[in-house]
């Protein structure tokens, strides 16, 4: 009895985690948080910096909100969630400023703007406020990994097409022969991000990775 319950908890944890990767991928399926996605998917480093920020904030907000969710009356739900999220974002902002100054600089305004990233409030509203702490952790981790996968894909494509070369963690990986001299710079601009997101979404739907409902 005990064992089967434990197993089902594990199974549920796994399910809540894996759903964020593909089935409800925040960028390609839920289409949430596109503003930071467009803005920071210009390089692999930025994408990882943003992922780290979202991980800390989303994990923190999901844990706190799932823990206090049932004590929160409906009328003050949104103000309380926003105060919690804004606090976490400010904490991340200060920690990045102190410990990761380069990332802080290149993320610029988009780091404080994680406050209004709809992924965070969306998960708080749709998941954390109705589920237990353990599953909310799984949800936060899954969504963050899904967000990271999407950002990495986008930033890889955009960096390679838009600059003709790839640099990650300050290490120069490769330069393409023709693109290196004539990069398609629109891919570094926001318009290019829309093109890449649209094409990837179409590709995923066509190949059946994302199911049409």
């Amino acid at each position: 009895m005990d064992r089967s319950k434990k197993e089902s908890t594990m199974a549920r944890f796994k399910k809540e985690f894996t759903k964020g990767l593909i089935i409800s991928n925040p960028v390609f399926v839920l289409v949430l948080g596109l503003c930071p996605t467009l803005a920071v998917s210009t390089s692999i480093d930025n994408a990882l910096g943003m992922t780290l920020a979202v991980l800390i904030v989303l994990l923190g907000s999901n844990i706190i909100i799932s823990a206090i969710g049932r004590f929160v009356p409906n009328i003050t739900r949104i103000p309380i969630f926003i105060v919690i999220i804004a606090t976490l974002v400010t904490v991340v902002n200060l920690l990045f400023h102190a410990n990761l100054p380069d990332t802080y600089e290149s993320l610029g305004i988009f780091l404080p703007l994680v406050v209004v990233n709809c992924i965070i409030l969306g998960r708080a509203e749709a998941f954390a406020s109705k589920n237990s702490v353990v599953y909310s952790i799984a949800d936060a981790l899954g969504i963050t990994v899904g967000f990271m996968l999407a950002l990495l894909m986008l930033s890889f494509i955009r960096q390679v097409l838009g600059t003709g070369s790839l640099t990650a963690f300050g290490i120069h990986c490769f330069t393409l022969p023709v693109l290196g001299e004539h990069p398609i710079s629109i891919f570094i601009l926001p318009a290019g991000a829309f093109l890449v997101i649209g094409l990837l979404m179409a590709l995923f739907k066509r190949t059946g990775v994302i199911k049409n409902d």
Partner: peptide
């Protein structure tokens, strides 16, 4: 209660 809770949350943050 809503006001008290909001106050508590703000003070803690």
């Amino acid at each position: 209660w809503p006001i008290i809770l909001l106050t508590i949350v703000v003070v803690i943050s």
